[in-house]
Amino acid sequence: MSLYAERPPLPSDDKRWRIVNGTMRKHGYSRNALIETLHTVQSSFGYLDEPSIKFVAKSLRVPLSQAYGVVTFYHFFSLKPPGKHTCTVCLGTACYIKGSDKLVVETEKLLSIKAGQTTADGEVSFTTARCVGACGRAPVVLLDGELSGQVGVAELKAQLERWVRQ
């Protein structure tokens, strides 16, 4: 038995774990690489679940409580899998002044969920953003990651209805 804890094996054969491992290796399995690695997990898998946090934490020798603390501190990280489609309404000041709060209300009504949730059928995730830095085009909505500017309520509703109906 080794005195030092060995790095845990990859959780599964899933190729994406090798990408995750690659990020950690690039940083020499340093504790500092925690956030970078979590970014890789999230971009590979879409979200972070308990086994993946545990795997990363143990690989980097970060205490579990600290890893969980980091994951839940940053709003960019999600503990739940995203829906098939994502709709993000920007709530930056410029967008707010241009009425993006109404877009939020309408979206929540149409999808019957609150911001931060996914529809029961797993079709659409709805989130809000603090500012995506496209204030010149306010109000801004990200549909499946694609930025649309000067979005009206009717336009957004039409797109969401298309997704819901599918």
Binding site: R31, N32, A33, L34, I35, E36, L38, H39, V62, Q66, G69, V70, F73, Y74, H75, F76, F77, R130
Partner: peptide, 20 residues
């Protein structure tokens, strides 16, 4: 990773170090 407070110098440093 989406934290306004990281604009503050010492918080930004903590974040680069991989912490909250």
């Amino acid at each position: 990773a989406g934290a306004f407070v990281c604009g503050e110098e010492t918080a930004l440093i903590a974040s680069i170090e991989g912490k909250r």
